[in-house]
Design a protein around this nucleic acid. Sequence first.
DNA 1: AGGCTAACTTGTGAAATGCAAGTTAATACT
DNA 2: AGTATTAACTTGCATTTCACAAGTTAGCCT
Lengths: 119, 119
Amino acid sequence: MMKSQEFDWRSACPISSGLDLLGDKWSLIIIRDLITHGTRTYSEFLESPEQISTNILAERLRMLTSMNLIERVDPNGAARNNAFQLTPSGAALRPTLEALGNWSQKYLKSFHPEIVSLD
Amino acid sequence: MMKSQEFDWRSACPISSGLDLLGDKWSLIIIRDLITHGTRTYSEFLESPEQISTNILAERLRMLTSMNLIERVDPNGAARNNAFQLTPSGAALRPTLEALGNWSQKYLKSFHPEIVSLD
DNA sequence: AGGCTAACTTGTGAAATGCAAGTTAATACT
DNA sequence: AGTATTAACTTGCATTTCACAAGTTAGCCT
């Protein structure tokens, strides 16, 4: 188990620091789902086509919450049906995800023909 | 060993597809070094403060080359002192990295006080 | 109050990563 | 020309992360 406040940053570079936090296959998928849908419950995240597994989802939700990128819609409510939403700092990742999505559309089509366009 | 042409894409979403390729701790560090320095040899990559290990570096250079994001400066030359450079599609990742760097600077300072500003 | 189900946790095997050492071949030196 | 040096890797093994399946807990509904 990892307490996210005590991260091991590889360097002082902002890009590498961003990757220290979000440079894995799942964290930004969670952010994407929240940008797309506004709020999302635990089981709604599981329905995304990428098929995250339950332990990874739980751990990422914990870490994203501890880094204040996401929060419960009802902070004091019980977990059941208590969706997550982006905080301002999580929502501020939108330009990064848009840039990545645009890049992928443009340059991955030849490797991945089924890739869809963003609207 | 992985032949990058036969990637397992998790979905048709451009964001998840970008992360399938680049969503790890090292690929975008290599791209960053090339954006910053123009060209970089194998041993120059090893000097970056993040300290990639040699096997991971070799594998990532292979896969980024196979996906046409980077290339040798001298495509027909021997490996020794034959630096890498970005192709147009690799260079097109610049806006994504800038967006990520800007985000990190703004929102990670409280967790990582030593983080430096981009110029 | 009993059953259902959302939100997890736990256990175990597989894969990715990190670390140290070894190999190869091009260049530099004498 | 022969030898030493070193850049660019590869290999083997320990460690960490991840995936998959199953189990647990606690709200909610009737």
